[in-house]
């Protein structure tokens, strides 16, 4: 459902060329739960941005759900992001002036759903994350874990084909991180494909597959990382 072949990303300034991704090839199957690890500067975020159509790449071929995205217009990329991809960010990226309900509503409005359909979807996902009684709370009135749950609800409301999670537990304490991780596992078991960038080995090993990135390329598995699925 997601396939990259020889994808490169070069950032150019007047004097310097930085190769963030080098001939990167990678594919994801339906229902995968993939963790992406690697040292800082290894290209994890660039990979995530390109996979999520947040950035364009310099060379190579990227197919998303069978569609070549190389030459799509900005508006087409926006539509594709909205319909097929759910994002979970390290710092949640909730809109502080909007309550839980309106935050989850944001991508649904861009999708063009009618009000009744949006309400149905929002109520379903808010109930799913256990925050039904806090629909009209502002993000500032929620704990970090609750905010990340709202962000997950926002990502799921549009029923995307896959979730891209950028350090989803990076700003949470271990208890909240565990609760968010369990929620992601539950979502994956329900059939949603997840690609998760993380620094934390104990979270990465809970994925079914790990991509260890080094210097813009796919390396071998992260040293010392034994995937639960692999070792099972």
């Amino acid at each position: 459902m997601l396939s990259m072949k020889n994808v490169s990303k070069i950032y150019r300034t007047e004097s310097i060329e930085t190769h963030a991704l080098r001939e990167f090839s990678f594919s994801v199957n339906e229902g995968d739960f993939i963790s992406v690890t690697g040292p800082s500067g290894s290209g994890k975020t660039t990979f995530l941005n390109i996979a999520g159509l947040l950035e364009e790449f310099s060379n190579g071929v990227y197919e998303l759900d069978g569609q070549n995205v190389t030459n799509l217009s900005d508006a087409q990329r926006s539509r594709l992001r909205n319909e097929k991809i759910g994002f979970i960010f390290q710092s949640f990226n909730l809109i502080p002036e909007l309550d839980v309900f309106d935050n989850v509503d944001v991508p649904l409005r861009y999708r063009g759903f009618k009000a009744a359909e949006r309400r149905k979807r929002i109520e379903r996902v808010i109930d799913m994350i256990g925050l039904g009684s806090r629909a009209h709370h502002l993000p500032s009135q929620l704990s970090g874990g609750q905010q990340q749950r709202v962000a997950i609800a926002r990502a799921l409301a549009g029923e995307p084909r896959f979730l891209l999670a950028d350090e989803p537990t990076g700003n949470l304490d271990s208890q909240m991180a565990e609760s968010v991780m369990q929620l992601l596992e539950e979502i994956n078991r329900a059939g949603t494909t997840i690609i998760m960038v993380t620094h934390e080995k104990n979270l990465a090993k809970r994925a079914r597959r790990n991509i260890f990135m080094h210097d813009g390329r796919v390396g071998s598995n992260e040293p010392g990382l034994h995937l639960a699925a692999a070792s099972a």
Partner: peptide, 16 residues
């Protein structure tokens, strides 16, 4: 700007 970037990531077109 971060909020605008987030809206874009969530599917907002430039026109939106």
């Amino acid at each position: 700007s971060k909020q605008i970037g987030t809206r874009r990531a969530l599917g907002a077109t430039r026109t939106a």
